[in-house]
Design a binder for these strands. Sequence first.
DNA 1: GCACAGGCTTGACTCAGATCAACCGGAGCC
DNA 2: GGCTCCGGTTGATCTGAGTCAAGCCTGTGC
Lengths: 245, 245
Amino acid sequence: MRRAEASKACPHNPAVSCNNCRLSGICLPLALESDEIVKLDNIVQRGRPLPKSRHIFREGDAFTSVFAVRSGAVKTYSITDAGEEQVTGFYFPGEVVGLDGIGQNRYASSAVSLEVSAICEIPFSQIEDLSGQLPNLQRHFFKLLSSEIVDDQRHITLLSKNTADERVASLLVSISARQARRKLSASAFRLPMSRADIASFLGLTVETVSRVLSRFAKQDLIRIDNKEISDLDVEGLKAAANLQP
Amino acid sequence: MRRAEASKACPHNPAVSCNNCRLSGICLPLALESDEIVKLDNIVQRGRPLPKSRHIFREGDAFTSVFAVRSGAVKTYSITDAGEEQVTGFYFPGEVVGLDGIGQNRYASSAVSLEVSAICEIPFSQIEDLSGQLPNLQRHFFKLLSSEIVDDQRHITLLSKNTADERVASLLVSISARQARRKLSASAFRLPMSRADIASFLGLTVETVSRVLSRFAKQDLIRIDNKEISDLDVEGLKAAANLQP
DNA sequence: GCACAGGCTTGACTCAGATCAACCGGAGCC
DNA sequence: GGCTCCGGTTGATCTGAGTCAAGCCTGTGC
């Protein structure tokens, strides 16, 4: 089992099929049988690696596809009425962006690569057709959308009730958990986004984010070298975030 | 057309079918053909009017159904790790609650009636089955979920970037717009929720909400008599909320 | 190699909204 | 009627995070 996982191809490679992708256990194929994955595979368009800071789609563009992150990292953001950028999410390999476009047939946010990334494009009309035939896919898509709602509601709670320390700690714990889900280190990783992105996402200023990170380092909850995080103390940060362990 | 709308039965009445419900233009039947509505109608369970302060479902309950509000009003909330209540949404006739339960097969929040309400229960497994046959229904459900995501992201932006005045003004504008959509007065209505609910939803304290409302009244943006709002100045409040008109 | 720009950090000061406290008034109950 | 309770309002004070300002570090381009 572990051997099979490990033998699966590197997700940077654009030639790899869903069936052979290392992310199949957490990405779209998750709930599908192997013959169903073949059908999904047929509609997935794998792109060349996308350089840093390139848009995948922009707020207001006609909605055509959802996109799975295969490698790298993506942020989504929208522009407020006051003209500022509000970061609405960070997305790592195995996660899907563009779901907010379904409702109005236009993307409600923009998505940009935070580093060199590989992206799988899945045309939504084909997902709809296929979902009519594959109840597992329909169900999985309903779940995907619903989980995004739950995540957003948790984020609403975070912004509404938590202090700056708790917000930053929560983000670190969340990224750490998502690393672990991809069998990567939960205690050492590179933050692909800027301090300004973190601040926007958490409803804080850059200065506050910087101060909190420095304080966490002083308290030995993390070590920081610019964007590199190491020696992350998951339990300590969960305590700082006021989360149940 | 208007005549036909007006002749449709009062949504308090539990006997009325989707086809004849006054809300059919904004609720689930929205995207369906009339023969499709009949099929939807067959799986909808209409309850007796629900008294005030009754739970429709609770956070953690096994997920079985989504619920359309037919009359009255509902709030959803979840309990934070610190044990406080976080209000995540207010729902008016024609709107659907319980979508956050799909992802984990358990409701991620609780839903309570804020006043006497009539609720339509729609078992989700039957929606899934029917969606496999009716592409219009499948699409509509995808859209419903996606719109909830967009709403939540707008709320995230509100909490992250806006002042107390802007938050309260936004809520008033939103309720006013939803009144208008149901062909009710956009400038006079009763707030079904307490000041504490508003405060929790907007990430403020009761005192701040109270002060802001008083100030708005002094500025002639609204008139308040306890929960009754009247003479609401939509344009003025949009300006106060920093929204494009 | 050096210069420049943008990202990040740190410090001093300010302020919007929280907290604490007092009071008001209507609904429910004896 | 009078009492109590709860939701709401208003005022005085406090504080966490924002603002303003300065300086540093890092990566990039010539």
